[in-house]
Design a protein around this nucleic acid. Structure first.
Lengths: 195, 195
DNA sequence: GTCTATATGCTGATAGAC
DNA sequence: GTCTATCAGCATATAGAC
């Protein structure tokens, strides 16, 4: 019951990360100060250092958490079946996941260069792991004869770039539902890689 | 013949923009200081202000110049013909142009949020103009019956995102020539929008 | 756990000598 | 046109009171 003087909340930790997420996504890591984050949380700047050793860790934790969530969510949904079924599942998953987490996605793509080399290597490995699933699907499809023989690595990068681009224009209040967007992109992806 | 004391070069102006281009592309606008730019040019920080009123103008000038060049280059190449011919021309142009100007492209996509609202509006209008040509091509193809009926605006965004993504992985010293990359992407674009 | 205060250094931009 | 010197402010991070 007794509270240490000045302690107004025991959930300040998550709120710090949330504030950093919003501000980094909106203004960019380098342009956001610890004071701005503190103001958003409702504490003084010094108090932030109870929750993070430094600003870089804030960025890294956000990216790490995002990539972990992405891979974990993907692992739950992964299924067996034909390459075409797998590709549709991957495409719809990617679109939906990225629409639901626009801030995280934006940071994950834009702020890579603001990570220290060690942190960058770790995040990049996770991203590569995610891309590799798509590449494996495309390869399977080629072997099945349903996808056109091609440079699968480049196809992988092209498909991911196309899908991730949805975050640059999609607005929830816009004219299209997430379901419709899924379908449109799946149409294009299917045709793009098919024979 | 006589030179003002301290004047070592009459091409410092362009060198300032070039240095800013490289540094902004590598580290991001917000993370680069005027002192870093000055060091790259080989002058003191104060001297930069003979060439630019402020840091924001440096960013805006780089973006403006890039978009102007892009639209001018495109206008030179634009041609008449079938939608399929026009789309191939657009695709190959976009890939090649973006491979040749990776720094400019990177800045043009990553630093939009660091423009003042007025500057942003101006750049955004130019980008929209570029996108509109692609959208018109897709529409023509639908009318000709060679492209699948679809949401042309989303198709436009999807195609541009896919093509522009080439800058994230292409390396001149890599295993693929620019010609091969052009062909691979054209294959995918053609299939993605066709009936 | 949060506060205030502060250390230390870098920021964009300007003034005036040469 | 470039220099040196400087202004005023903000950066990250830390110290110590409560």
């Amino acid at each position: 019951m007794a509270r240490t003087a000045g302690s107004h909340s025991d959930i300040t930790g998550p709120r710090v990360l949330d504030a950093a997420l919003r501000l980094f996504a909106r203004h960019g890591y380098a342009a956001v100060s610890m004071r701005q984050i503190a103001k958003e949380v409702g504490v003084q700047a010094g108090a932030l250092y109870n929750y993070t050793p430094d600003k870089q860790s804030l960025l890294f934790d956000l990216m790490r958490r995002h990539m972990d969530d992405l891979l974990a969510s993907r692992a739950k949904r992964r299924r067996t079946g034909s390459a075409l079924e797998k590709l549709e599942d991957f495409t719809r998953f990617h679109i939906r996941y990225h629409l639901d987490r626009s801030d995280e996605v934006f940071i994950a793509y834009m702020e890579l260069r603001n990570l220290t080399p060690e942190n960058f290597a770790e995040i990049e490995a996770l991203r590569r792991e995610y891309e590799n699933e798509l590449e494996a699907i495309l390869r399977q499809g080629e072997e099945e004869g349903v996808f056109a023989p091609a440079d699968t690595r480049i196809e992988t990068m092209a498909v991911i770039a196309m899908l991730t681009g949805v975050t640059t224009w999609y607005r929830v209040e816009g004219r299209l539902s997430a379901d419709e967007v899924e379908r449109i992109y799946w149409d294009m992806v299917r045709k793009a890689v098919s024979v």
